[in-house]
């Protein structure tokens, strides 16, 4: 297209973008915007609904519990995901392909099927409980925050493994061999040479998993206990049962802002979001188009 045409604003290309913008604006942005204005503008301009979040005695407890659960999930996915991603960089192309497909399985598995399966696995008399009893433990994970963390970690593992895999894959492993050739202990070689190089992928994986954990609704509602609800359930309850639209809007805005800040941070560090989107939609060349 000749440059002279493009310089004349606005470009006719915007006509192609317009329908999508109208749809997204009407269906998502307007409701979100109205929810923000409702939270500060009912009955007139006020921060009372935000103050109430921190003084009603419930919301703060739930927010802290949600953050702790998210932290536990982040640690679990990191502890399991780092060695897995490292293994992916070490094996041959065929095994790596299998490991990649396995990582992507949680993306494919239906939300309700997966949560249903976790109820079966974790409930009293379920396989996990039977296994625990063999070791003399009578511990039921169903209807506990621990059970929620186990179920959430499974589905969030890809969001840890994928950024880690791209970070670890870029490290030249000969550096490790060099360190050991110069007399370094394997642990020291890992800690002083490999770990610092992997830190970018680690940080973006940690932030991403933590952020996504904050918004989980179905898993805590089905696998968790009603007495120990997380913030998403509280949001749902305020909206559909208590009809406290202002309180729900204020709480929703807090969750939204925290999530967006964390995601923007992770994105700045590793370009993770685009990488996830690309893997999720299986279009390898898309990274170049975005960024």
């Amino acid at each position: 297209m000749p440059g002279t045409v493009r310089r004349r604003a606005p470009s006719p290309q915007w006509l192609l973008v317009a329908p999508a913008l109208v749809l997204l604006t009407a269906i998502l942005l307007v409701p979100l915007g109205r929810s923000v204005s409702r939270s500060v503008g009912t009955p007139s301009f006020t921060f009372a609904h935000y103050e109430a979040l921190f003084t009603d005695g419930v919301t703060l407890t739930v927010l802290i519990r949600t953050a702790l659960t998210a932290a536990v999930v982040t640690v679990i996915t990191f502890v399991l995901g780092y060695p897995y991603a490292y293994l992916m960089t070490r094996v041959g192309p065929r095994v790596r392909g299998i490991l990649m497909v396995v990582v992507l399985i949680p993306f494919w598995t239906s939300v309700m099927a997966r949560n249903f399966a976790w109820i079966i696995i974790l409930e009293r008399h379920g396989p996990v409980n039977v296994l625990f009893k063999l070791f003399g433990l009578d511990l039921v994970l169903y209807e506990s925050v621990a059970g929620v963390a186990v179920a959430m970690s499974q589905v969030l593992l890809p969001f840890m493994v994928l950024p880690l895999f791209s970070a670890l894959g870029a490290i030249d492993r000969r550096l490790l061999l060099a360190a050991r050739g110069l007399g370094s202990h394997p642990v020291a070689a890992f800690w002083r040479v490999y770990w610092p190089l992997s830190r970018g992928g680690v940080v973006s994986g940690l932030i991403l998993v933590f952020t996504l954990s904050l918004g989980f609704y179905v898993t805590p509602a089905l696998v968790g206990s009603p007495q120990q609800s997380l913030v998403a359930q509280l949001l749902g309850q305020r909206t559909t049962q208590l009809l406290d639209f202002e309180g729900a809007s204020a709480l929703g805005f807090v969750v939204l802002v925290v999530s967006l800040i964390l995601v923007a941070w992770a994105n700045r560090i590793g370009g993770t979001i685009s990488a996830i989107g690309v893997v999720a939609t299986n279009a390898p060349s898309a990274t170049k188009g975005r960024s």
Binding site: A20, L21, L24, T25, I27, L28, L29, V30, P31, L32, R34, S35, R38, L214, G215, Y217, A232, L235, G236, T239, T240, F245, A248, S249, G252, V255, L256, S259, L260, V263, I273, G277, R290
Partner: peptide, 22 residues
């Protein structure tokens, strides 16, 4: 482009609450 992508990084429950009320 960011506006079109925003639902990917917004927690589903936040979207659900806002959309439901509207």
């Amino acid at each position: 482009r960011t506006m079109l992508m925003i639902s990917m990084v917004t927690p589903a429950v936040v979207i659900a609450v806002a959309v439901y009320i509207s």
